[in-house]
Simulated scan of single mutants.
Amino acid sequence: MDALTRLHRSLAGGDDDEEQPEDSILGDTEGICSLSPVQRVYGFAACLVAGLALMILSLVVFIRPIKFAVMFTFGNILAVGSTAFLIGPSQQLRMMLDPVRVYATAIYGGFVFLALIFALWIHSKVLTLIAIICEICALFWYSLSYIPFARRMVSDLMSICCSGVKAARTQITQICDYC
Score class of each variant (00 low, 15 high):
147 I>M: 04
133 I>S: 12
111 F>P: 02
108 Y>R: 14
137 C>M: 08
145 S>T: 09
156 D>C: 11
141 W>Y: 13
134 C>M: 10
159 S>R: 15
154 V>R: 05
108 Y>G: 08
156 D>H: 14
145 S>F: 00
150 A>N: 03
113 F>H: 04
157 L>K: 14
136 I>Q: 01
125 K>W: 01
116 L>I: 06
114 L>E: 11
124 S>P: 07
114 L>D: 06
135 E>V: 00
109 G>P: 10
161 C>R: 15
116 L>Y: 09
129 L>Y: 00
139 L>S: 07
147 I>A: 03
133 I>C: 11
161 C>E: 14
122 I>Y: 11
125 K>M: 02
138 A>H: 06
117 I>V: 15
157 L>S: 15
127 L>E: 01
146 Y>V: 01
137 C>S: 07
137 C>H: 05
125 K>L: 00
126 V>P: 05
160 I>G: 12
124 S>K: 02
154 V>P: 09
133 I>Y: 08
139 L>T: 06
125 K>P: 11
139 L>N: 05
141 W>A: 12
150 A>K: 01
131 A>T: 00
123 H>V: 06
118 F>G: 02
152 R>G: 15
129 L>H: 00
122 I>M: 09
119 A>V: 02
156 D>F: 13
120 L>H: 03
128 T>S: 13
148 P>D: 10
155 S>V: 11
118 F>H: 12
140 F>Q: 04
150 A>Q: 04
133 I>H: 08
150 A>L: 01
119 A>R: 08
162 C>Q: 15
106 A>W: 12
125 K>Y: 04
119 A>Q: 01
108 Y>E: 13
157 L>V: 12
137 C>G: 09
128 T>D: 03
